[in-house]
Write a protein that binds this DNA or RNA. Structure first.
Lengths: 93, 93
DNA sequence: TAAAGTAGTTTATTTTATAAACCAAATTTT
DNA sequence: AAAATTTGGTTTATAAAATAAACTACTTTA
């Protein structure tokens, strides 16, 4: 009757991050923080979880002299997101 | 950009319960437990939360000699569900 | 009448989310 | 050129949530 909701994606902030990343080539930490309105600490933790699941890739580098964290969705992440959206539909229609 | 997800509805079990109740006149505890696959303890706790928020009404009575708990969605619950679904769309499309 | 089943509730444990505190380097102010 | 502030984060502590396990109360069956 109801499909299971991937608990990693069933979280407001992680879902927002994935929602942004699915629509862009890449996005950096500051952009994600601004768009989601999350605190840096919370964002840092949630990005780690997504990365550990292989849903996103994280590259740490520098823009000039300042550190810069760039995130990108992976194919695995894209699939998981699609499946999550599909599962959601069993609840909302 | 992203609408806030009502945390009371952003829970797999509570969402499943609301999803069932929105489509029927009423449903009893056992039916909800069977349809959702939840444990009785978990269901009991989550129904309480929905009731305290005024999203569902709970009537306790008897069917013959056995206790029977009947749940029904309220107008407030219906509205909250609709708003939640609308908010979700800001993440998944 | 003892054992097992039904319909739940309460309590305890685990997991999760979030905020607060912190760090290192860069930039700005005085 | 120190001192203070800002930037870009991470780590740690706390609060909240989900879940399971244990329990209660009553009923049915053997």
């Amino acid at each position: 009757m109801f499909k299971e909701l991937n608990p990693l994606l069933h979280s407001e902030l992680r879902l927002a991050v994935m929602s942004i990343l699915i629509g862009v080539e890449s996005a950096d930490f500051v952009y994600l923080r601004e768009q989601t309105g999350a605190t840096a600490g919370n964002l840092s933790v949630q990005l780690d979880k997504l990365a550990k699941a292989g849903y996103i890739g994280i590259e740490k580098g520098f823009r000039g002299k300042m550190p810069r964290t760039v995130c990108r969705i992976t194919e695995v992440g894209r699939d998981a997101f699609a499946e999550y959206v599909d599962a959601l539909k069993s609840y909302i229609k």
